[in-house]
């Protein structure tokens, strides 16, 4: 087929773009992923019965702010990276900012604490399951995000994969934080970060394969 015939074909009928319908599709897909993640959460965990009490603690809210900022930033960068005209303007270091800030807080608290308090700050009571649980919860949202990303035109595939991983990890961590009683920033800075960075790393590694178009 000659190029001019191909153009004729592409331009014939049905060239309209319905942004609202598309947006509903994407949100729908993300919603399905989110619901599946919630189902996993309900099956494996539950909302912490002491959540109200935890919420009275300032560290609950710093944890919340940290996770939410990772999720929002990941989602925002993911959205920018999907469009070729804006993708090159997204700076990579921005994704690291919440981790660096919260990590710094964790370090300061660790070094100002009494020596015998350091071990529980680092390990809490659930260090060995925390990151794994977050990663597990992120899987359905991760797949939904990949599906959405494939409807777009990412030109930086690994970076886009990493950001959609960060977004899914953030959403998963937010859910998990409704169950997990660990609010010490040092603990969160290590194990929550790891839990959100695992899906990000998977996204970066698989980005070229999963997101090619």
């Amino acid at each position: 087929m000659k190029t001019e015939n191909l153009i004729e074909m592409l331009a014939r009928q049905d060239t309209r773009v319905d942004h609202r319908r598309l947006m509903l599709h994407w949100l729908g897909a993300l919603g399905v992923g989110l619901l599946l993640s919630i189902a996993v959460f309900v099956y494996l965990f539950r909302i912490n019965p002491d959540l109200r009490m935890l919420m009275e603690n300032i560290w609950f809210w710093t944890r919340f702010a940290f996770i939410a900022s990772v999720m929002i930033l990941g989602g925002w960068m993911f959205a920018k990276l999907g469009k070729p005209g804006t993708a090159h303007r997204v700076p990579m270091w921005l994704a690291a900012a919440p981790f660096a800030l919260f990590g710094l807080l964790g370090l300061v608290l660790l070094f100002t604490a009494a020596p015998e308090e350091r071990r529980p700050m680092l390990l809490g009571i659930s260090w060995n399951v925390c990151s794994r649980n977050i990663t597990l919860l992120s899987i359905p949202i991760f797949f939904a995000s990949v599906w959405v990303a494939r409807q777009f035109a990412p030109v930086r595939l690994r970076f886009t994969g990493a950001m959609l991983g960060l977004f899914s990890g953030g959403a998963a961590a937010l859910m998990y934080s409704m169950y997990c009683p660990e609010i010490a920033p040092t603990f969160v800075a290590i194990w929550y970060s790891l839990g959100m960075l695992i899906p990000a790393a998977v996204g970066a590694v698989l980005g070229r394969k999963l997101l090619a178009w």
Partner: peptide
């Protein structure tokens, strides 16, 4: 051409078309 047609919704009217197509 086919790829751009399929992903034409990624054009953001606030951006220059040529920059989008060039990317």
């Amino acid at each position: 051409l086919i790829a751009i047609h399929n992903q034409r919704h990624t054009y953001d009217a606030a951006q220059p078309v040529t920059a989008w197509a060039h990317a």
